[in-house]
Amino acid sequence: MAMFERSRALPLLCVVALLIVLWFGAALAMNWDQAQALADDDAGWTDVATAALSLDRPLLPTPDQVASEMFRSVFDYPANSPRSLLFHAGVTAWAAVLGFAIAVVVGMVLAIGIVHVRTLDRALMPWLIASQAVPVLAIAPMVVVVLGSIGQTGVVPKALIAGWLSFFPIVTGMVKGLRSSDPMRRDLMRTYSATDAQVFAKLRWPDSMAFLFPAMKVAAPLALVGAIVAELPTGAQAGLGARLLTGSYYGQTPQIWAALFMAAILAMLAVATVDGAQALLVRSRGGRL
């Protein structure tokens, strides 16, 4: 087991090391001109290189600059301060969680309708596909502004956009799952003369879980993206989107990158939470999904 773990950790570390080296190289190249412009005329290339890796407003901050920015903004302020990165992460996460909940509920209801009502199957699917063709990222600002004009500000418009962006995988996954029941097991329910509701509760629903969880794993990071995008347009006061925005206003590239890394961490946490829920279900089912 230890051998296995080591053999997995080693390649991973190699990749991380390689990425960091490449990142430093890229930072050096991109920041070189700015560093040279700021440097004294008699500065050697080592001085310029040192300066390029420690600029205040670099084009591309170095990994250590991003790390120290993250460390500072997470640990130097209380979590309820607007200067704390955790505060902003919390605001975005809350909107994403609400949006994800909307996506799961709406997705399930739509899937149940599609599976049980023939007309919905034919009438609804084209619209659902069309809804995904709409570039939500582009119209999100409009949605936020429109909802704001009817008094819906704060978390509601963000959650709606997050839900919009993430419900489709849930619908398709659930439709497939609810239809995945083995014909023999369905015949069996018929021999018991089970009602449609019983077939749903005892066969279709449990069968759909094997499709719901992968769908949720796709949907959870999408909800996060939706929440961040919804924070961009109105110059929101809080949230990772707001951090991205103010960072780019003031050329605070380390702040942008710190927010991006925080978003990545949140996405990993979201997927891990879905995995955890799945593990609980698997355990209650005796070890198989």
């Binding site: 023999m184 021999t191 005892k202």
Partner: peptide
Amino acid sequence: YGYVFQAPALYPW
């Protein structure tokens, strides 16, 4: 009647 199929058709969960 009770019906037994070719496969056990048990519910795995």
